[in-house]
Design a protein around this nucleic acid. Structure first.
Lengths: 263, 263
DNA sequence: CGGGGTGTTGATTTCTCTCAATTGACGTGG
DNA sequence: CCACGTCAATTGAGAGAAATCAACACCCCG
């Protein structure tokens, strides 16, 4: 059901040189949330992520068990990490939105313990391990990468708590709050609204619900006036209210407010 | 309900110098699973973790939101990471068994986004940030720490999938398989048996079940002949069978088998 | 001896799943 | 231009897994 990406057979056609993105690189925007990146830092990152491929929706990028050799960076679109269960059902264990780095496995040369796939059409930059290592030589970038790794892990914990402890409607509310803040961190929000390109089936695989129940849940959230979703455009009526309802506390995203002091 | 540890008021009484542990340090045993540690590496780690405190069961080590200044290392006993839900219920998002490092937050000087607590009586070593940084100067140790961080994240993903996708009995089976391998990695197994000091309430908070249902589930697993649990001693009748039943695939622990090639 | 924490068992309720059928949007081809 | 297929979303009805409420047995410890 998941289309395979014929990466070895025809790598050329999908590759394009993006050139300087003039501050449009979401990876830079994201990292800049934490560490103050110099102009040179930015240029280096831009150059490193110049090699990009356009990949259609629902395509495997990297299968579980493979030894990944390069870093994948989402430039546009939504991708995910997922794992397959015994019955063939899959569970999505993480969203990768623009600016997100898909895998840190190349650093340790370990095989993947999850798979990567696109959810929507995506632009993906590939950064070689060597190239990433040289980026990590720069203190500000290294700091930002460490922070980024910390946040991915925190998100994972939060998803665990969300799925483990909250009923369907709060679970959905919580996820929507998180997505708003993550997209805002890369400038992809419209106030308290954002483009949510996922199908209810994909949301179901994320939230450990059936797609039927996701549908019912969205209907009820809409009726209660908390959100409005039309044509993939999500409008949050009142963020504070939705956050309170979903038990959402943004601390774990470690955005803004906090300041650090050392090295 | 969780006793608070009065860490600032009376630090002295509970502190003891462990001295050289002569290869008994579970942190070393764990790290040695991956990187070949030299004798000097081992001595340095031993010295770094010499300062230990004995802490009673069900005691908070570190509350969410605090800025942690040192690394906590479990020497003996079981501890956990947990988060509180709105209603006051808590969910355990990770076990910390002997050899596990509780937090990597000090590296990035960020506030904790989860809490730490002991589940049983524990011996905890505290390593200052500076001391840990100097350990990380040594390539083998740095490698092992990176690997260890990768594994913690992989465990988190696996827990998410386990709780999200499997019914209670398989969920329990999966957790028991993981625990056996993790404890074996630090030499705390007895073949296919190990000491499981957790209460069913604590297991319930881990597996997102009610304690009543955990009890029923254990009874059924016992009746089906897969396990035997008496006086906190767990005996796995047939590991392969239990693993198959729980959909357990040990890849994500990145123990043994895999070999790496570079730097 | 009594009490609190722990584990067990039974009865009932609730949330979510599964199965099934229907609608609407969209794109393709006759 | 319309018929058709596909896919996403919706709605209804019935089933099932686990939660909750409640009572009770057990054990360790003071």
């Amino acid at each position: 059901m998941l289309k395979e990406l014929e990466e070895t057979r025809a790598p050329v056609p999908r590759v394009a040189l993006a050139g300087r993105m003039a501050g449009n690189n979401p990876f830079i925007t994201k990292l800049a949330n934490f560490a103050p990146l110099s102009g040179e830092d930015r240029l280096l990152i831009d150059d490193a992520s110049a090699l990009q491929r356009t990949i259609p929706a629902r395509t495997d990028l990297m299968p579980e068990g493979k030894l990944s050799s390069c870093f994948h960076l989402v430039i546009s679109g939504f991708a995910c990490r997922y794992k397959l269960l015994e019955h063939g059902r899959r569970h999505i264990v993480g969203y990768l939105v623009p600016g997100d780095c898909c895998d840190l496995h190349p650093v340790t040369m370990r095989t993947m313990d999850y798979s990567l796939a696109t959810l929507t059409d995506c632009q993906i930059a590939e950064i070689s391990a060597d190239c990433m290592l040289s980026l990590a030589q720069r203190p500000a970038i290294a700091d930002a990468l460490r922070w980024s790794a910390l946040v991915s892990e925190a998100i994972l914990r939060e998803w665990l708590v969300n799925i483990a402890g909250r009923p369907a409607d709060q679970r959905v509310a919580h996820l929507l709050c998180e997505l708003l803040l993550r997209l805002r961190a890369v400038g992809m929000d419209y106030g308290e609204s954002f483009y949510l390109p996922l199908t209810q089936q994909q949301l179901a695989e994320t939230l450990a619900l059936s797609s039927v129940h996701v549908s019912r849940t969205f209907t009820r959230l809409r009726e209660s006036g908390l959100i409005n979703l039309r044509n993939k455009q999500l409008i949050i009526r009142d963020f504070e209210e939705l956050a309170a309802f979903g038990g959402f506390n943004p601390n774990y995203l470690h955005l803004g407010s906090e300041r650090r002091h050392s090295s």
